[in-house]
């Protein structure tokens, strides 16, 4: 008599996921959305031209674009982890940035002990993976399937604990990890630090690895199955509890890797993670919550927006332009540039 779909629930018709007619026609993730890529590229070109008009200096714009793209790759890696967690566990992980901060301090400590900063990856990535498993199994598993707010509050609690534990033990004074042999590398008329370029390359490599893992391995298939439909996945014999833990850990490992990669670029403070956290949220929404490839593209876009925003709004924090982009995307395209899919 009553069909299984809740048809009284008309709100679902306005649901962000089903808003876009394009997505409906071409099921998410299959065809390459060329038209949208073209539009985004065009928008970026316009933004760059406007920045040139505004500043009147080619060097300034090239520098901004170079810096933006390079850091954007790292944002992409961080956001991939965050969006993966959202796509599979349906958790908005407010603690993501604090895992990054932990990796920063870990890298700092290892560098102090004489290790090359990039070799710290061999420690920070497994360490954050392990911590991710522990946090998911120990804390978050108890709140799976509870209202979204509960999980939001729990991850918030985790981030408060991590960030303030760092503050308690290391104090608030800023630290840095110098990269041995770091120097400026000319790119056209601009200059970028070698550490920045290496962070970008490293982030892209890891992002590619993650992508391959998701697309080409049995584990990846299982993760994508759980993201698409967890009860269905359970029926075909996938242990969703393991997948939840592994996915969360993969996400935190991304944050850990990014933390080590950016250690030579940033001032290391307990609050540094929070900054990356905010940017990662923006990127995730921009790329479409749960969309891993979208996150990478979103990272590049936000990296650019941050740098070009510094040209449009001189004197304001570059983060302000990131938020302006964020709010615009939330209101105008809440499903993100590429819609939601894992």
């Amino acid at each position: 008599m009553t069909s299984p779909a809740d048809q009284g629930h008309v709100a679902a018709a306005g649901d962000v996921a089903t808003l876009d007619p394009d997505e409906a026609r071409a099921p998410a993730g299959r065809a390459v959305p060329w038209r949208r890529i073209a539009v985004i590229t065009a928008l970026i070109v316009v933004a760059v031209v406007l920045a040139y008009v505004r500043s009147g200096s080619g060097v300034v714009v090239v520098q901004a674009v170079a810096t933006g793209v390079l850091i954007g790759g790292v944002y992409g890696l961080i956001a991939m982890g965050l969006t993966l967690i959202f796509g599979v566990l349906d958790i908005v992980n407010f603690a993501h940035g604090s895992f990054l901060a932990l990796a920063l301090f870990l890298t700092f400590g290892l560098a102090q002990a004489g290790l090359h900063p990039y070799l710290a990856l061999a420690v920070s990535v497994p360490a954050m993976f392990l911590l991710g498993v522990l946090v998911q199994r120990g804390i978050l598993a108890g709140a799976m399937g509870k209202p979204l707010e509960n999980q939001l509050l729990i991850t918030l609690g985790i981030s408060l604990i991590i960030e303030n534990a760092l503050l308690l033990f290391f104090g608030a004074n800023p630290r840095s990890v110098p990269l041995p042999g770091d120097r400026g590398v000319p790119i056209f008329e601009a200059v970028a630090n070698l550490s920045r370029i290496l962070a970008f390359v490293g982030a892209l490599l890891l992002a590619g690895l993650l992508y391959l893992l998701l697309q080409r391995t049995r584990l990846g298939t299982a993760i994508r199955a759980v993201a698409a439909n967890d009860t269905g996945a359970q029926l075909v014999g996938i242990d969703t509890r393991v997948i939840y833990a592994v996915t969360f850990a993969l996400g935190t490992a991304c944050a850990g890797a990014a933390g080590t990669l950016v250690a030579p670029l940033v001032t290391i403070e307990p609050t540094t993670g929070a900054l990356f956290n905010i940017v990662a949220f923006v990127v995730v929404v921009l790329g479409g919550m749960g969309n891993v490839v979208g996150a990478l593209v979103g990272g590049l876009v936000i990296g650019l927006a941050e740098q070009l925003g510094g040209i449009y709004l001189p004197g304001q924090s570059p983060l302000l332009s990131v938020f302006i982009v964020f709010v615009l995307v939330l209101f105008l395209r809440p499903q993100g540039l590429f819609g939601r899919s894992a």
């Binding site: 804390i139 408060l160 303030n164």
Partner: peptide, 13 residues
């Protein structure tokens, strides 16, 4: 400093 917020966070969870 920071201990108070750690306690808040723990309490929250």
């Amino acid at each position: 400093s920071g201990l108070d917020v750690i306690v808040y966070g723990t309490l929250l969870i």
